[in-house]
Design a protein around this nucleic acid. Sequence first.
DNA 1: AAAATATTGTCAATGATTTGGCAATATATG
DNA 2: CATATATTGCCAAATCATTGACAATATTTT
Lengths: 213, 213
Amino acid sequence: MDKDISQAVISRLPRYLRYLGELKDKNVERISSSELSVLMKVTASQIRQDLNNFGGFGQQGYGYNVDYLYSEISKILGLEHQYNFIIIGAGNLGKALGGYLNFEKRGFILKGMFDKNPDLIGTQVRGVKVMPMEELPEFVRSGNIDIAVLTIPKEGAVLVAKILVDNGIRAIWNFAHVDLDVPEYVQVENVHLSDSLMKLSYNISSYNENHKE
Amino acid sequence: MDKDISQAVISRLPRYLRYLGELKDKNVERISSSELSVLMKVTASQIRQDLNNFGGFGQQGYGYNVDYLYSEISKILGLEHQYNFIIIGAGNLGKALGGYLNFEKRGFILKGMFDKNPDLIGTQVRGVKVMPMEELPEFVRSGNIDIAVLTIPKEGAVLVAKILVDNGIRAIWNFAHVDLDVPEYVQVENVHLSDSLMKLSYNISSYNENHKE
DNA sequence: AAAATATTGTCAATGATTTGGCAATATATG
DNA sequence: CATATATTGCCAAATCATTGACAATATTTT
């Protein structure tokens, strides 16, 4: 159905949702693409074009109903589902993600954490216990876990990803600094923090290059 | 000089660097764009085109020298500099970033952490003390801080960004879930984790949509 | 209820990015 | 050292993404 929507469009949807959420909070009932374009600093044409990939949510002469558009974009993004997730790697990053309450509000439910460090095993994050890695395969196989979050160093990540896939995981949110090689039916979203920092570094240097006399 | 290189190209450079680093570690001396394209699962044409934005680093009939190309991309990304950075928000995410040793290897030196929570003030991350927010303006103004990392909730982020800018910061690595409005001379790199999670959610739903009978 | 105004959805034009192809030129081979 | 082979740098073509324009159609005003 909505097979070939480009990732460029998908990447913009969460930002639309964020702005619409703020408008909802301010009890704004309707908004036109041109008003929204000013707020978001994009072209009105892009907003209309993006939304049109999924069907017409607006009305001529009126604009878009904020609540309706918000809920439609939520649906498109799959946020009406609940997702059970586990975190592998209970270091600071894992704990940060596990403790982030807004994820739960969106329907992402933390079901378990895993680590190989004996000092961490048995500790808790928001009532969820950190388990030893040995229990991971069984946990993934029997529980209905939708997403595995990988917050371990790159050295172990490839092997852990294999274990996850072998036990039936269908989605990985990967913070390890390595590209995972998984079957096509497994969705992977990478967050490569050091890549992001390097881009910042580039932009700093490049700005400085272009602005010295 | 290298003024108008597209961000699409810049975004790929850290990944090239990562693969070249792995080749260096394996003592591979030279590589052709087509060999690298197989490893990285991109087209050889894209690799050559990307590198050509910055000048010719290869040699016909030979390919690219791994060490040389690695160091040239490092230079392009500004990684031969040292950057002093501070972290605002000493929660788990701030601690995770502050404790990440690889950043230091790349020349990113943690100079201070700040938080408004009295329980955290005085605690340490890798020998760096968490200071109260009151000390932030003076610290930014007098120290030579190149990058501020924002790991605080969105509510406070806009104000803190203003304080940072007013005191002379030139670059912000923003993890707060809000768009910062800063002067054009301030470089901002956003890491919106929940946007990333929503993209994963979309890809899960969309895969399921397209594969049910 | 007619006229004026607002605003979408969509098409066409433009702009940007990616890919394919190949001349030029290096290395490797016999 | 001449010939075969490899591979870049670059150009042109193809693809993809963004923007601008406007008919169609709703809302708002008088």
